[in-house]
Lab assay of single mutants.
Amino acid sequence: YETDHQDYCEVCQQGGEIILCDTCPRAYHMVCLDPDMEKAPEGKWSCPHCEKE
C-alpha cells in the first residue's frame, strides 16, 4: 500500500530502516534521533519536530 511518508531519514537523508512519525510525513533512523533510540517505539510515536509543536 502507498503511504505519504518520506522514504528517507529527515536527519541524514538516507534510506534504510526508518521509523515513521504518526503525526507528520517525516521518517527517521533510530540512531539519528537525539537521544537515539535503542528499539522501535510501540504504539503511536511523534517525531521531535511534532513533540515541539
Rank of each mutant, 00 (worst) to 15 (best):
L20A: 13
P41T: 08
C21D: 02
C9A: 00
E17R: 08
P35D: 06
K52N: 11
M37V: 13
A27M: 09
Q13N: 15
E42Y: 07
A40P: 06
V11A: 09
D7T: 13
K39P: 09
P41I: 12
E42L: 09
L20C: 10
I18K: 04
W45I: 12
S46F: 14
A27I: 03
D22L: 04
G15E: 07
R26Q: 12
S46L: 07
C24I: 00
I19L: 07
T3L: 14
G15I: 01
G43Y: 06
P25D: 04
K44G: 14
C12D: 00
C21A: 00
G16E: 14
V31L: 15
G43D: 07
K39S: 06
Y28N: 03
S46R: 08
P35M: 10
C21T: 02
T3D: 11
D36Q: 10
C24V: 00
L20N: 09
C47L: 01
Q14V: 09
E42S: 08
M30H: 03
H49V: 06
R26H: 05
I18R: 10
Q13K: 02
L33D: 00
P41S: 10
Q13P: 01
K39Y: 09
Y1W: 15
W45T: 13
K44R: 12
E51D: 08
W45D: 04
C32H: 09
C47G: 00
P25N: 14
H5M: 15
E53P: 14
P48W: 02
G16F: 02
D22W: 06
C24T: 01
D22T: 13
G16V: 04
Q13L: 09
P35I: 11
T23V: 05
C24E: 01
D22M: 02
P41N: 15
Y1S: 13
D34C: 12
Y28F: 11
E38L: 06
E17N: 14
V11H: 14
G15Y: 02
C47S: 00
D22E: 11
T3R: 12
P41E: 13
E38I: 08
C12I: 04
A40Y: 02
C50M: 01
E2K: 13
R26Y: 03
L20G: 14
I19E: 09
V31I: 05
M37H: 06
Q14H: 06
C24R: 01
H29R: 02
Y8P: 12
K52C: 08
C32M: 01
E38D: 09
I19A: 13
S46A: 07
K39E: 09
G43S: 09
C21I: 01
Y1D: 00
Y28H: 12
E53V: 03
C12S: 00
E17H: 08
D4Q: 13
E38N: 06
S46H: 13
H49M: 03
C32P: 01
Q6W: 03
E51P: 11
M30C: 14
E38V: 10
C21R: 01
C24H: 03
C21S: 00
Y28Q: 03
H29F: 00
E38C: 10
V31E: 09
H29Y: 01
G16Q: 12
C32G: 00
D34I: 02
E2A: 07
M30N: 05
E2M: 15
M30T: 13
C12R: 00
L33P: 03
C21N: 00
E53W: 13
S46E: 10
A27P: 05
D34G: 12
H29M: 01
E10S: 12
K44S: 13
K44T: 15
E17T: 10
E38W: 04
C50E: 03
C50G: 03
H49Q: 07
T23A: 03
P48C: 11
E2V: 14
D34R: 07
K44W: 13
C12G: 01
C24P: 02
M30V: 08
G16S: 13
R26L: 05
C12Q: 02
H29I: 00
E10L: 11
D34W: 11
H29W: 00
A27K: 05
C47V: 00
E38Q: 06
E38M: 01
K44V: 08
E17Q: 08
E53Y: 04
K39C: 03
T23H: 15
D4H: 15
I18T: 15
H5P: 14
L20H: 14
W45N: 10
M37A: 09
A27T: 09
K52E: 14
Q14L: 03
C32K: 01
E53L: 08
C12E: 01
V11S: 09
T23S: 12
Q13V: 11
P35N: 11
T3K: 15
E53Q: 04
K44Y: 04
W45H: 08
C12H: 00
D36K: 13
D36V: 10
Q13T: 11
K52D: 03
D34Q: 05
D36W: 03
H5T: 15
W45A: 11
D4G: 11
Q13Y: 08
E42W: 02
G16M: 09
L33F: 12
I19T: 08
C32N: 00
P35T: 12
P41C: 06
T3Q: 04
L33Q: 08
I19V: 07
Q14K: 11
G43E: 14
C24W: 00
C12V: 00
L20I: 12
R26V: 06
Q6R: 07
D7M: 10
S46I: 02
D4P: 05
Y8D: 05
V11M: 15
E17Y: 10
D7F: 02
K39L: 08
K39I: 08
K52A: 05
K52Q: 08
Q14R: 14
D22I: 12
H49N: 03
G15V: 06
W45K: 02
A40M: 12
H49A: 04
